[in-house]
Design a protein around this nucleic acid. Structure first.
Length: 578
RNA sequence: GCGCUCGUGGCUCAGCCCGGAUAGAGCGUUGGCCUCCGGAGCCAAAGGUCACAGGUUCAAAUCCUGUCGAGCGCGCCA
């Protein structure tokens, strides 16, 4: 409908020989006395054209068609608003479309089949997913669905950092715990992974391989630089242990490493699957390192003259491309930095031919954005193709009590615990109901409560109520038929409000997708549910009058369909009964 | 110190990108509604100098500048 009006206005302006995009000046009104849509274009143009805004509005209105089937009347109001009142016909055709297109309703071709790769979560496989990752998962999945709905070709990807130093730290952590299980007494490094899951993996290893990897503590720790607790450097300490374990274990090291990686990765996969989040691809960092892609990328930067050596390390001149300072890509000890492989990864993404790249990162990574873009530019690519969306942290509350978490210390609420505690629907909904760059207070008590405090249940209840009405109808052995003509019976305020609410759905989807704001959809669904509950309360649906009954059933069925479509996008179920 | 993000009723938040017609919800509070399709519901009331101060504009919660406050980031960590 908006598109329809947009076309009419553009045409009218063209006849007046004005070229101006009216898209942003055409909006739904807040107050029904101002009609359905309002356009402030006359006021915007008045100054430029040196005309009185009301006069200008008049001449624009004169160029709008008078016989359009969807426009009832057009008024000029206030300082120069053009208010458009739609016909009932306009709203009835929406019901028609919804019932005909069903799950297809709301889809559009806006994206023109452009390909978008959306990378999200990508947590290091060094521990289970925790509630902090959940927000990125819920947000990314919902956004991907939205983009797909408006006609983009979406590729969801999880980048697995299976090749970095952190993975070695994990392997060492597991091994040290294993040694403890073998009866060794060791001082566990402060920089190693402390969580219980490390014990679990170590225990598996001990069960399956017995004492195969057993080395004495003295052998392991001899000559290793002291840990921070002994006045040393925790990084040097752990790096020393990594090197030592690789020497001592030789080929066996890889067994431990893989056992740790696979256990955790399986876990992450399983958690996301249970959370309703699926990927087209799990991309392994080791694919890049094994094929020398990181090395090649660095050489390309070197060849282009964007690097220099200093203090024994290789630096990328990112400051020449808008970053605040230059960055190390090869450390003094010869190892690539995380950044180096990330450059190679982004290069690889572009080489795979995606039109646009979207990364969803935690807000703590915001300082990282300029350097990645700098690298893309330096490699001769258009950094505009990459959009980084930052997601703020979620703070967990249990009622008033604020819950603490810390990954390294191993004290955290995992995503699995959250899902088992509050359920998938509530979790998915709560994660995205706030604007992503807004800090989120996630109240476990509220998410679990099955009362009207909880918007998830409120929306789902509307859907279940409708299912119940339909069930009643069947139980009474009655049938109904959709007939567009009967919609003319819909005359009450609540019915009208619902018709308008339904008509907004495609506009909301489009806006939420393009603005990357799935939370807009949650607000809309809540509104729609509220409008339905109000309607339900004052307009009985199953009544003897067949025509009005069928009209109300059509309206109700349309609401149900929209609730289903909308909930599907945000990954929440639409239950028949609750 | 520099950078990014945020500051809207008692609480949690929309609206800001793209300036417009009396600033919207939910929770909480107060008061109503079950002979009737599921009360996990509905109706109503009270409650706001949109952090503060300037500026731009016919018009500012919205744009600009500054101040204050909160979070995060500023490693040869990832």
């Amino acid at each position: 409908m908006k598109q329809h009006l947009h076309n009419l206005f553009t045409k009218a302006l063209k006849q007046l020989e004005i070229s101006q995009n009216v898209a942003t000046h055409l909006e739904r009104t807040r107050d029904t006395s101002h009609g359905d849509f309002a356009c402030n274009i006359a006021m915007v143009l008045a100054k430029k054209l040196r005309q009185n805004p009301r006069d200008l509005a008049t001449s624009i209105v004169e160029h709008l068609p008078t016989n359009d089937e969807f426009i009832a009347k057009v008024e000029i109001a206030g300082p120069g608003f053009i208010n458009i009142f739609l016909t009932k016909q306009a709203y009835h055709s929406n019901i028609d479309d919804i019932l005909r297109l069903k799950t297809e309703y709301g889809k559009s071709k806006l994206g023109q089949n452009q390909s978008i790769m959306i990378e999200f979560v990508s947590a290091n496989p060094t521990g289970p997913l925790h509630v902090g990752h959940g927000r990125g998962a819920a947000y990314g999945a919902a956004l991907a669905n939205l983009l797909q709905t408006v006609g983009f070709k979406v590729h969801r990807e999880y980048y697995v950092n299976d090749a970095g130093r952190q993975m070695n730290i994990l392997a060492v952590s597991v091994w040290l715990r294993y040694l403890e299980l073998c009866g060794e007494t060791i001082e566990f490094p402060s920089n190693a992974y402390q969580g219980d899951y490390v014990w679990d993996i170590a225990a598996d290893l001990h069960r399956n391989h017995a004492e195969l990897f057993h080395k004495s503590t003295t052998e392991v720790f001899a000559g290793i630089p002291p840990d921070i607790s002994n006045g040393g450097d925790k990084e040097l300490h752990i790096d020393g242990l990594i090197q030592r374990s690789q020497q001592l274990l030789d080929k066996q090291y890889k067994i431990i490493f893989n056992q740790a990686l696979n256990t955790i990765l399986d876990n992450i996969r399983h958690d996301l699957e249970q959370f309703g989040v699926e990927y087209e691809e799990w991309f392994l960092e080791s694919n890049l390192t094994d094929t020398n892609k990181v090395q090649q990328t660095i050489e390309q930067l070197q060849a282009a003259g964007h690097t220099y050596e200093q203090d024994g390390a290789l630096w990328f001149k990112s400051s020449a491309f808008g970053d605040e300072k230059d960055r190390v890509i090869v450390r003094e000890n010869g190892q690539f930095t995380y950044f180096a492989s990330d450059i190679a990864y982004h290069k690889n993404k572009l080489e795979r031919g995606f039109d646009q790249l979207i990364n969803i990162w935690g807000a703590d990574h915001h300082g990282y954005v300029p350097r990645v873009k700098a690298a893309m530019t330096a490699l001769g690519n258009d950094a505009e193709r990459l959009t980084v969306l930052l997601v703020q942290f979620a703070t967990l509350y249990r009622g008033e009590e604020r819950l603490q978490m810390s990954t390294r210390s191993g004290e955290f609420v995992t995503l699995r615990e959250l899902r088992e505690d509050v359920g998938r629907d509530a979790a998915r909904f709560f994660y995205i109901q706030r604007k992503s760059e807004q800090h989120l207070n996630f109240d476990l008590e509220l998410a679990k409560s099955q009362t009207n405090d909880n918007p998830v249940y409120y929306i789902q209840y509307a859907h279940a109520r409708i299912s119940s009405v339909m069930r009643q109808l069947r139980e009474q052995n009655q049938t109904w038929q959709y007939n567009k003509a009967t919609l003319a019976c819909l005359a009450t305020t609540h019915e009208q409000t619902l018709l308008v609410a339904l008509a907004r759905y495609p506009e909301i989807i489009e806006m939420a997708a393009l603005a990357h704001e799935p939370h807009q959809l949650t607000y809309y669904l809540r509104d729609l549910a509220q409008n339905f509950h109000s309607f339900y309360d004052t307009n009985k649906i199953l009544i003897p009058n067949n025509e009005l009954r069928d009209a109300r059933l059509s309206l109700t069925a349309a609401v149900q369909q929209i609730l289903q479509n909308g909930l599907a996008i945000i990954g929440v179920s639409a239950p028949e009964v609750m």
